[in-house]
């Protein structure tokens, strides 16, 4: 059965780009336009990994990961932060919130897929 990856980004084109790469590798993709939208779409369903932007309207990526980790169902769901943000301070905030990896855009699809398969539980 295909693994499900949620992509959270306010840029629809970026979501589409990530989705193309993931679907090409056999993953199912669930999209959300910001942290708030992502939390509302989770609703207990099985998500194997989340890829989230940092700077988003309504709820930013760091806050989203903090909120996500409060939910026991997603406490151990790996999160990759995918962002243009490269400040070390931001990375530390992401790590502290519970993110497992930090990818700076633009990403190489092969590199991203490698990180996804590495973080998704077998």
């Amino acid at each position: 059965m295909a693994k499900t990856v949620m992509v959270v980004d306010d840029s629809a084109s970026l979501r589409q780009v990530v989705a193309i790469a993931l679907r090409g590798a056999g993953y199912e993709v669930l999209e959300a336009c910001d942290g708030k939208d992502a939390l509302s779409k989770l609703s207990g369903q099985k998500i194997h990994l989340i890829i989230s932007d940092v700077n988003m309207p309504n709820m930013d990526g760091i806050t989203f990961v903090r909120e996500l980790k409060k939910n026991p169902a997603y406490k151990f769901t790996p999160v990759i932060m995918l962002t243009t943000e490269s400040q070390e301070q931001k990375k530390k905030e992401g790590q502290a919130a519970g993110a497992r990896a930090w990818v700076v855009k633009p990403f190489q699809p092969a590199q991203m897929l490698s990180a996804v398969s590495k973080l998704i539980m077998p």
Binding site: D9, S13, L14, A21, K105, P106, F107, Q108, P109
Partner: peptide, 15 residues
Amino acid sequence: ISEVLVSLQFQDRTS
């Protein structure tokens, strides 16, 4: 496709 996917990300950065 991989190269195009990288190129398409310029929109997010430009935005």
